[in-house]
Simulated assay, not measured.
Amino acid sequence: MVKFYQHTSSYEHAWDNVTYAFWLRYPNPFASHVLGCDVIDRSVDPETGILRTTRLILKKGVLPRWGRNLIKNPDAYIIEESEVDPRTHTMVTRTRNLNHARVMQVEETQTFSLHPENPKWTQVKTEARIVSELRWGLTGRIEAFGINKFVDNSARARKGMKHILERLRQNAATAGAAPAPEC
């Protein structure tokens, strides 16, 4: 079995500012579970101008009581790969956990683009796939836990982005300048 999640949201902020905030989103009060974030690789394609980045993120995990015998250390290493295309105003991020993948693999794709109804805003489409290869009748329970945690964490992530965007807006108002450079 596989669980899927899809959600579309928007920020009343320009695409340049939202993509800038994405890189600054840790730390924030809604992401206390994020222990670290490191850039592994970053490059710009000289022909297309596309920025490609790979980051490693360490998150503090939380297990239900029934899952504590399956995993001794709930912390998760996440690989995040992203492409920012300044010409099309599109940023696509793909994340997946590197450890505990047999118990539960979480793959997320987010697409940041200009809002179709208001180009001064940004639309974000989030898609996730959660699958467990564990048997013993636990697959459904693990995947249900995973999708519920993902929904909760996605809502917190949106709150965190709004927090960072508001701080950027406040800083720009104080400085009297645009909050983000052109990508």
Results as ranks from 00 to 15, higher is better:
M1I: 07
M1A: 04
M1C: 03
K3R: 13
K3G: 00
K3T: 00
F4P: 05
Y5R: 02
H7W: 02
A14V: 05
D16N: 14
T19R: 05
W23E: 08
R25A: 05
Y26V: 14
P27E: 06
P27H: 08
A31L: 12
C37S: 11
D38L: 10
V39H: 09
I40Q: 12
R42Q: 15
I50P: 06
L51I: 15
L51K: 11
T53E: 12
L56V: 07
L56E: 11
L63P: 02
P64C: 04
W66E: 07
L70Y: 11
N73P: 07
A76I: 11
E81A: 02
S82I: 08
E83F: 08
D85G: 06
D85H: 09
H89D: 05
M91F: 09
M91W: 06
V92F: 09
R94Q: 12
T95V: 04
R96F: 11
N97F: 07
R102I: 15
V103W: 08
V106E: 00
V106G: 01
Q110F: 02
H115D: 14
E117H: 15
E117I: 10
E117K: 12
P119E: 15
K120D: 13
T122S: 12
A128Q: 00
R129M: 07
I130E: 00
V131G: 05
E133K: 04
E133M: 04
R135L: 08
L138R: 05
L138W: 07
R141T: 04
R141W: 04
G146K: 06
N148V: 02
V151M: 03
R158Y: 03
H163E: 08
H163W: 15
R167Y: 00
R169A: 13
Q170V: 14
T174H: 06
A175N: 11
A175L: 12
G176E: 04
A177I: 15
A177D: 10
A178L: 11
E182T: 14
